[in-house]
């Protein structure tokens, strides 16, 4: 097909663009978005703030708060993988527009919970080396 026939075909079919945000975005499942804390599960190991590559999480154990700098978060998921109690989840929600850089603070009420004994997953074994030279 030449470019001319492509253009004629496109002229009589529906447009390729979606009028987002009037129409919802075409997001695939498992899309990366914002992170959310479930503060009932946090045991203050501080792994999330240590693993964050962009210093987007500021944890204060004495005050029992996590501050998430939304503008710095790159939705990499390192904190989600690092958390031993699954207190952080990543939603499929794109970042909202705002007028100023948002900082969300998550506060934990009550005393720090004791970590429940979690069964360790079996260690990964590397498969055998490639056979063909």
């Amino acid at each position: 097909m030449s470019m001319l026939s492509n253009s004629l075909k496109n002229l009589f079919s529906k447009p390729a663009t979606r009028r987002y945000p009037a129409v919802p975005a075409n997001i695939q499942p498992n899309c990366r978005g914002r992170i959310e804390y479930d503060m009932t599960k946090c045991i203050w190991c501080m792994m999330c703030s240590r693993r964050c590559p962009t210093v987007a999480i500021e944890s204060d154990k004495a005050a029992q708060t996590h501050k998430v700098y939304r503008m710095r978060c790159i939705a990499c998921g390192a904190c989600v993988e690092a958390c031993p109690t699954d207190a952080i989840t990543m939603l499929e929600h794109y970042a909202d527009a705002s007028y100023a850089p948002t900082i969300d603070t998550y506060h934990q009420e009550g005393p720090i919970p004791k970590p429940a004994p979690k069964e360790k997953p079996p260690p990964c074994e590397p498969s055998e080396a490639p056979k063909k030279a």
Partner: peptide
């Protein structure tokens, strides 16, 4: 150190987000 961005007035966690679908 990176420059600190200004904080927004309410410091409560956000409400549950709407379903994107």
């Amino acid at each position: 150190k990176p420059a600190t961005p200004p904080t927004t007035p309410p410091a409560t966690p956000p409400a549950a987000p709407k379903e994107a679908k």
